[in-house]
Design a protein around this nucleic acid. Structure first.
Length: 289
DNA sequence: AACCCGAGTAGTCTTACCTCA
DNA sequence: TGTGAGGTAAGACTACTCGGG
């Protein structure tokens, strides 16, 4: 998709698609990389909305957190300027001729017209008439709402009234805007969480494959050598952990062999705790993480 | 009972893309 | 080949309903 629709989300599904990432792994088969934002929203199970970052921090954790922060903090809405014609057609049932006349007007004029065409707080009758008429907030209104949202994501009745008055909107409109804004924020957060979990999944999968391979090789060695291969190593070997570069004194005793296998097998589903990350690698004759 | 909120969704608008004359 | 009009799909946005606290 080359379409460059301005989005209120920095990391919406389409964005992820553009970067070659997909969400299907993280949120299940219902959502795919090609799913639209709406599709994604609707297919997403409720449980996923409360995803927690319970996995251990990954290497790129900071990056994810940064992204989260930026998406939450900015929350800016880059809406393309509506063309004069479409702006007018959005808020009045004027004839095509009238629409064409608006082409002559500049953007500000149209913006002002949009305000005047909006349902006003004081005009109850008009409220009924245009109850389902599409309202498009002006840039100024959106900006102020965003500012208030940054301060508080919820409003008390007093704040709502004041803001509605300030924006020349109905309190109900302000209330709905905040509800939708919170929903967008939550959705965005869910997307970030999904992306983070996906990366964790990929990392663990890679690690799992590596360990499985290692385990296989260890087993092959174990059965091909008599006496057991681990007996051939000196009782104590100095080696360096390639990750933390600490010299460790690995004691390759007879009990170490099965322990290695056990360790490798146990990491299939869970990453080993960092505190006990030193173990002896018979292939490199060194301890590693 | 009234109010607010989240989730889901309908309706509307905007834009990009495609086809065709 | 270039271009403008018309149609359409997708995305964004606003507002509504409903159930729950």
């Amino acid at each position: 998709m080359k379409r460059q629709v301005a989005s209120y989300m920095d990391m919406n599904p389409q964005h992820l698609c553009d970067t070659g990432l997909s969400l299907d792994l993280a949120i299940g088969p219902a959502a795919s990389a090609t799913s639209t934002a709406d599709h994604y929203r609707r297919q997403q199970p409720r449980e996923s909305a409360s995803l927690t970052l319970s996995l251990a921090a990954a290497a790129d954790d900071d990056e994810v957190l940064k992204a989260m922060q930026s998406t939450v903090n900015t929350g800016e809405e880059v809406r393309p300027l509506a063309s004069p014609c479409s702006a007018v057609s959005s808020f009045s049932s004027a004839s095509a001729a009238a629409v064409c006349v608006k082409k002559e007007k500049d953007v500000e004029e149209v913006e002002a017209e949009r305000v005047s065409n909006n349902c006003r707080a004081s005009d109850e009758e008009e409220d009924n008439n245009c109850s389902r008429k599409k309202l498009r907030l002006t840039k100024e209104q959106s900006a102020l709402l965003e500012d208030r949202f940054k301060e508080h994501s919820t409003l008390n009745p007093k704040q709502k009234q004041a803001l509605a008055k300030q924006l020349n909107l109905r309190p109900r409109q302000v209330e709905v805007w905040f509800q939708n804004r919170r929903a967008r924020t939550k959705l965005k957060q869910t997307e970030v969480d999904c992306e983070f979990l996906k990366r964790c999944y990929e990392t663990l999968t890679t690690e799992n494959q590596r360990l499985q391979k290692e385990l296989q090789e260890l087993r092959a060695l174990k059965f091909s050598q008599q006496p057991p291969f681990y007996m051939q190593f000196p009782a104590a070997t100095r080696s360096m952990c390639p990750s933390c570069e600490r010299i460790s004194r690995s004691t390759a005793t007879a009990t170490d062999g099965p322990k290695i296998v056990g360790s490798a097998a146990s990491v299939v589903v869970a990453a080993p705790p960092k505190s006990s990350h030193h173990f002896f690698n018979p292939f490199t004759n060194s301890a590693r993480c």
